[in-house]
Amino acid sequence: MKRILAVTLPLLASMALVLLLGASLWSIAGSQTPVNLPELLAGKMNESGVNHPVTAVLLNFRSYDTLLEIAVLVIAGITGISMARTASLEDPELRTSDSLLYALQRWFIPLMLLLAGYLLWAGADRPGGAFQAGAVLAGCGVLMRLGGIPLGFLRPGLLLRVGLGLGFAVFLLVAVLSAMAGEAFLAYPPGMTKPLIITIETVLTFSIAMVLLALFVSAPVNDAGAPGEDDS
């Protein structure tokens, strides 16, 4: 009886959630929207410095979100690294000795690097941008990691710190400098919008890739004989 209740109650609660969500969706869809966002955006596009609306929103109109996002990512990365054992970076057991993986690496890593560069560059006027490029770059790093290529920059040290903090630091610097120059916080000075956006996107790409890769690498390995890591 208790078991049945333990399954039915969550089931009923979830179904109620779905029904409530569906009803509210239906009523919202029926009402008129007070502002026409796409039209508003299209009217302001030539002030944004880029030609792709999503990039314009991400790095100009709503750049505050992006700034806080990279801050969240850096915090997550630091937390992940603090869980890791540095020795696990060199653990030979983590390497996958698979001839298919080696072949894939030789062909894919240059291609993926090229793809990441293209995605970053395409962000100005086509779908693409820092997030996608960062994800591809991180995937590239994961592939190298699995193949046992030493990634020395992921060891605790100056390079890791710079890599993690670079995106947030540059973004914040631009925001504060433009505020000191008389504009609003995060409002780019006129005429410098496009170069600033490209700079920020480039450093964001590296930082995002670094955070994701660090989180992958820092996953604790289950090494029973490790000194100081035993739970007993």
Partner: peptide, 11 residues
């Protein structure tokens, strides 16, 4: 879609 492919399928 691009981000979801790179992240959802890859990472």
């Amino acid at each position: 879609a691009l981000a979801e492919t790179a992240i959802g399928a890859g990472l």
